[in-house]
């Protein structure tokens, strides 16, 4: 009961300055992937209002995906109807900063008493730092992960999580076995635009960032290696050219044995999948070791 008392006290303290101010500040906000975030924001809002009664949040219509989000912002910038806060994909911030649409958060951060202790770790802030200024704050993060239909995988002799492929060569090898066993579409690998962080992952795992000083580093041995790896995966698994959502359906319908995509789809796959044993597993890179601690800083 002690904790409860403490939290009420905090709320009372926070409401006090709010009640002194009369006019409400309206903040317009938009986010992508409504299926993913609607409930999250529904739950956050009352708590936010409790803490900041002088602010009103006006939700705009959700963006379909990150690309739509950036497109919408670019169009709204022309019409001068930008929202105050927008939730964008990590890899789409640069264009908004370059065009001067995104504004530096430094003046606001300077006013925060305990910003560094509020949970914003410097490594996370670096992801949204351009020049020396922070332009965005991290909200959600997902990671590349392997989805496996263990029932299908059994056809290739993979019986347990320990037997799951550990390198891309092994993935291709399993693909071959599955196709021999009559599986037409053994795998989908999220190469599409939202998933181009798989390309990033392939390059980072070799210690090479995708962008350096405003240049796309595909023209490097590591870039070539990444593309060669992708080519061998696509050819070796006879991967059809599908959109990610169709690729996901390929997996949920019980056809594909493997689906390499973001952790964010686990819930929707779980919701829609046919009756099969579903497991996820980390993806290992081509080479044994990978992350040298420099890559993030370079981005």
């Amino acid at each position: 009961m002690k904790t409860k008392y403490l939290s009420t006290l905090l709320v009372a303290l926070l409401t006090l300055p709010g009640s002194l101010l009369q006019a409400k500040v309206v903040v317009e906000f938009a986010y992508p992937y409504s299926q993913l975030f609607d409930v999250t924001y529904e739950k956050i809002l009352p708590k936010f209002y409790e803490a900041h009664p002088n602010i009103e949040i006006k939700m705009r219509a959700a963006y379909e995906n990150y690309e739509d989000g950036t497109n919408t912002i670019l169009r709204e910038a022309v019409a001068n109807k930008l929202p105050d806060i927008t939730m964008q994909g990590l890899n789409r911030q640069a264009i908004l900063v370059e065009k001067g649409i995104a504004k530096s958060l430094e003046p606001f951060i300077a006013k925060e008493a305990n910003f560094s202790k509020d949970g914003y770790h410097s490594a996370m802030l670096k992801l949204s730092t351009f020049g020396n200024d922070v332009y965005g704050l991290p909200f959600s993060i997902s990671l590349p992960v392997g989805y496996y239909n263990m029932d299908v995988m059994a056809k290739a002799g993979v019986k347990s999580v320990d037997d799951l492929p550990k390198t891309w060569e092994e993935v291709i090898d399993v693909c071959g076995k599955l196709m021999d066993a009559g599986v037409k579409n053994p795998m989908f690998w999220g190469w599409n635009i939202t998933g181009n962080w798989f390309l990033q992952a392939l390059m980072w795992s070799q210690g090479q960032g995708v962008m350096e000083n405003g240049k796309f580093m595909i023209d490097t041995p590591e870039g070539l290696q990444a593309l060669e790896t992708m080519k061998s995966i696509f050819r070796g698994c006879k991967m059809p050219n599908l959109s990610t959502s169709d690729g996901s359906t390929l997996f949920t319908s019980g056809e594909a044995g493997m689906f390499f995509w973001s952790t964010s789809s686990v819930a929707s796959v779980e919701r829609a999948k046919a009756d099969f044993d579903f497991k996820t597993n980390g993806i290992t890179s081509r080479r044994k070791c990978c992350y040298d601690g420099k890559s993030i800083r370079r981005s």
């Binding site: 409504s34 219509a61 379909e64 995906n65 939202t194 996901s248 789809s265 929707s268």
Partner: peptide, 12 residues
């Protein structure tokens, strides 16, 4: 109708 779409993250 677009509001029911969320790409691969669960179009209903």
């Amino acid at each position: 109708m677009r509001e029911y779409r969320a790409d691969s993250d669960g179009t209903f």
